[in-house]
Design a protein around this nucleic acid. Structure first.
Lengths: 188, 188
DNA sequence: ACGGGAAACGGATTGTCAATCCGGTTAGGT
DNA sequence: ACCTAACCGGATTGACAATCCGTTTCCCGT
């Protein structure tokens, strides 16, 4: 483990903080020039730490991803399979609303220029999700014919749908209900 | 009604055809330079006909929008309200898959730089949809608490979800079923 | 048929942002 | 204090959007 030099670590943290603030204040564009300017740092520094826009996104998304992993863990430990699914999907939905970077990361397939961190998180998530969903299927709480990937896509789609409205947070529960009932299948 | 000059009409059609072909062959970027080059036309010509990327998108989407209007008409004439909803949502979903430009147009709110054509189509669509959905609500075929806008967003979300998979067309029915059951509410 | 003027054309140009590259600077071990 | 590897900054190149204006084309009236 080769650790970062002090100034490098400082700049990296500064850039992440600056980017997060920009995103939080509604600037979704993540222009790299602008980010460097705001952070009071050269463009080169931005590209050294985040060679790809994707790497920046994944770095930003890391905490949100961790939160989802927490949720998935909770979901996998819950007694009722159906409730497990609900916890899992709700966590995914909430974090996507809270963090656009996470939404972007989770909606796109893993690529080879992905951060090791993110790859690890993705793997762990997939494992947990597989468990939760398998249990739900076994207990008949999940419509047959829907793969794990289908579920994944459908949650991302629901997050997208929420984003189309003026106040996403206000409709989370309603849309989540639609999704849950939809994936549960007709027979109640 | 001031009609277009002959060469202008020709170029406009040529540009639309070229753009459609590019999109159909997988190039979703719609770079305006590139479009001009492919059509063998100056950049100025592109901007004269389509002052805004949005105008180009709407022009491309027009036929797909018309197809959806057809579907909505059919839906509004159908006896069973539930079937009406299904026809309406299926039409929306299929056209969004068939035409990314339409998907972009229908997912975004109407703006002031919109084409009159598109504005008209949007209005007509809203009217038809309102009818179909009102009937469905009245007959209890639609979960209460979901507005027309919610439905709109959810279809767009479902189209988005389909787009995440490798072969969207193959999963249309499955995802549509999830959506329909979800918006129908639990009581069958 | 032809001449004039409005309409449309083309591409040079400007501006913005992504992405690279390298001469200068700094950290941190010896 | 010194040395070197790591890091920094910003000039630079390249791609694309968008505008602007001198030139060409159409079309209508004669």
């Amino acid at each position: 483990m080769t650790s970062l030099r002090a100034d490098a670590a400082r700049n990296r943290a500064l850039l992440l903080a600056t980017a997060r603030q920009a995103v939080a204040s509604g600037d979704l564009s993540l222009q790299l020039n602008e980010l460097a300017r705001r952070a009071g740092v050269g463009v080169g520094t931005v590209y050294r730490h985040f060679p790809t826009r994707r790497v920046l996104l994944e770095s930003l998304a890391e905490p949100a991803f961790a939160a989802v992993l927490d949720g998935a863990q909770t979901a996998s430990l819950h007694d009722d399979p159906r409730t497990g699914v609900e916890i899992l999907l709700r966590a995914l939905l909430l974090q996507q609303l809270a963090d656009p970077a996470f939404a972007a990361v989770i909606a796109s397939p893993s690529t080879d220029d992905a951060t090791p961190q993110t790859t690890a998180q993705r793997n762990e998530f997939n494992t947990l999700a597989r468990t939760v969903l398998a249990r739900a299927r076994q207990s008949g709480a999940l419509r047959p014919g829907l793969t794990d990937e289908d579920l994944h896509h459908l949650v991302c789609g629901t997050a997208f749908a929420l984003g189309l409205g003026p106040t996403p947070a206000a409709r989370v529960d309603a849309y989540l209900r639609v999704l849950l009932d939809g994936v549960a299948g007709k027979a109640e």
